[in-house]
Every structure is written in C-alpha cells, then in structure tokens.
C-alpha cells in the first residue's frame, strides 16, 4: 500500500497530460461553439483553420529562430503566435466575405452551410499541404521541463517521478488566460454583449440596432484566434501534422456537443470531459494498481481498458451517449 507513489503516478501519467489535452480541446471547442451560436452552422473547416494558423506560426517561429530571437524558457512560438492569429483572422474574414456571406444573405439551411464549410476545408487543407507538406514538423523549443522526473524524485525521495513538460505548463497557462479574456469580453464589453444577444435571439438583436455584420466579423476573428492558439498549443505539446488536425475535428465536436452547442462554458467542460475520458480509458493502470493494492493482489495484466489507437472511439462513444440521453448537452445548448 503506497498511496503517495500511486498518487504521483496518477498525476504524472493521467492528470497532467489530461489537463493539457483538455485545455487544447476546450479552446478548439470554444471556437466551434461560438460559430455555431452566432453563425448557426457546424464548421467542418475548424480543424484545418487550426492547422492553417499553426502553419503560419511555425513559419514565423522558424524565422525568429534563424535570426536568433527566442523567448528564453518559453517557446519561441509564443512570440510568433500573434502573427499566426493575424494571418488566420485575415484568412477567415476573407473566406467569410467571399464565400459565407452569400449564403447568409440567402438564409441557406445549416446543412448547405456545412457542405460549404467542407469546401473551405478542402481549400485550407490543400493550402497547408502546399506550403508546409504533410510531414511532422517540430517547432518546440525553450525549457523542456518545468519539473523533471529526476528532480522530483531527488527532492521528495519517492520512487515515482512527476514530470511537467514546459509545453504542458505553457498550454494550461495560455488556455486559462485566453478563456479569462474571452469571458471578460463576452460578459463586460459592448461588443461581447451584442454577440450574446445576437446568439440568443437574432430578430430581437436586429431590432435593437445591433449591426449583424460587425457581430459576424468579431465572431470570426475570435474563432480564428482561438483556433490558432489551440492549434499552436497542440503542436507544441505533441507535434504538427496536417492530417492530425483534421482528425481533431471529432473530439472537438464531441466536446462542443457534450457541453451543449452554443454554450461557451459547456465547451470548456466538454473539452475536459472528453480529454480525461480518453486518457483514463486508454491508460494502463497496472502501475497505479500495484502501488494501491496489497502485494498478493498485484495485477498481471496491463489493466488497460482499450488500446490508445481507439481514442477516437472514446469521444465517439461519449458523443453517442449524449445524443441519446441528453441531446442539448450538459449546459443546455441550443442544439435540438
């Protein structure tokens, strides 16, 4: 019986990675949910918007690295992030102007808009592959570890080490800051309030003199910002590969639907629910169990509920359960 070591093993292998991944998913799901709430369609191009923003950030990062500009302990990508956000915002605003605006004026059905977003996805995906290729790109630098396993063991004398990667710490801190800013913006500023009013009741908002074009533009800018930040954090933490970003669409949508499409708070909760379920169901619990259980009951098998290759099945199963039993999500989105 060794609860302390078990706890450290749990924190190291489940909690910390889950927290970082959850933060990345939450930021992605926030973008999806905002577009859904205000533009009223599921944006299939969101994964590729993330990839686009990350790509620009990577290019700027490489440029900074080549001229010797770094951020010390922090990854250089954080310095390049504003440029990525700017480029992505310009890109999505142009997309809206050239493509989506026409369908909005026509009052096209949500399904048509989804198909249109599929076309946008194709184009963005093609652009990303054209510029940066399909391979893995590594652009993380700065401090590797906030706490390394060896230091932790030496300091505490425990058998298990706790390591927190620099990218994980940066992810959680950046995500917390971003979410705080977003909520302040939505709750306190005039534009934020008009966005919420528009999401609640379009007609009433229009009657009270809210400029719909402005609301739509601000929404796209916020969505581009969130997508770029989420993409860069994910790329720093894991690695950047265009196809992975397309595949992130499923957990991100699952997170947004679990929370309730259109509800920002729900998107954050959903992101963490999906991330922790994924990590917990695919983690081999043998190590933790060996510490907690008496020796005689020590497990032989890995105690892994499903292989890591099935992590998509986890988001999918949660998605199906929510669709069956709670179609409006945890936070009563407007999804039904």
């Amino acid at each position: 019986m060794d609860f302390l070591n078990a706890l450290v093993a749990f924190l190291n292998f489940v909690f910390v990675p889950g927290l970082a991944y959850g933060a990345q998913l939450a930021l992605g799901a926030l973008g999806v949910t905002l577009i859904y709430g205000i533009l009223r369609f599921s944006n299939f191009a969101h994964g590729d918007t993330m990839a686009f923003g990350t790509m620009v950030t990577i290019f700027v990062t490489w440029f900074f690295q080549s001229i010797g500009l770094t951020a010390g302990f922090l990854p250089t990508a954080l310095l390049a992030l504003p440029f990525g956000i700017l480029a992505t915002a310009v890109m999505v605003l142009a997309t809206d102007k050239v493509i989506y605006q026409f369908y909005r004026r026509q009052k096209a059905t949500p399904t048509i808009l989804v198909i249109v977003s599929m076309g946008v996805m194709f184009v963005m995906n093609g652009l990303v592959r054209l510029f940066i290729g399909v391979d893995d790109q590594n652009f993380a630098d700065g401090g590797r570890f906030l706490i390394s396993a060896g230091e932790f063991k030496a300091a505490t004398g425990l058998a298990e080490g706790l390591s927190i990667k620099g990218s994980q710490a940066v992810t959680v801190a950046t995500a917390a800051l971003t979410v705080a800013l977003l909520f302040w913006f939505l709750q306190k500023t005039r534009t934020g309030k008009s966005m919420r009013a528009f999401a609640d009741n379009e007609d009433l908002a229009l009657l009270s003199g809210i400029n719909p074009d402005r609301v739509v533009q601000v929404t796209w800018i916020i969505a581009a910002t969130l997508a770029t930040i989420a993409g860069v954090l994910y790329g720093l933490d894991k690695s950047f590969r265009p196809f992975t970003y397309f595949q992130l669409l499923l957990p991100i949508f699952a997170a947004a639907i679990v929370g309730g499409l259109g509800s920002p708070l729900g998107a954050i909760a959903g992101g963490f629910i999906i991330a922790f379920s994924e990590v917990m169901l695919t983690y081999a619990w043998k190590k933790v169990a060996t510490y907690v259980l008496p020796d005689s009951m020590a497990p032989d098998s890995l105690l892994q509920l499903m292989g890591t290759d099935y992590k998509f099945a986890v988001s999918f199963a949660i998605l199906i359960l929510v669709l069956l039993f709670l179609p409006t999500g945890l936070f009563k989105g407007k999804s039904y």
Binding site: P110, V114, F312, I320, Y336
Partner: peptide, 18 residues
C-alpha cells in the same frame, strides 16, 4: 439535428478504420 448525423458518421468511419 441534421449536422449531428454528419458528425456521428464522421466518427463511425474513423472507428471502422481504427
């Protein structure tokens, strides 16, 4: 909702391949 079918089928396809 119609987009739910889109998301659910996107998921089932990934799982079948997995």
């Amino acid at each position: 909702r119609s987009d739910y079918l889109a998301i659910a089928t996107l998921g089932i396809a990934e799982i079948i391949i997995a």
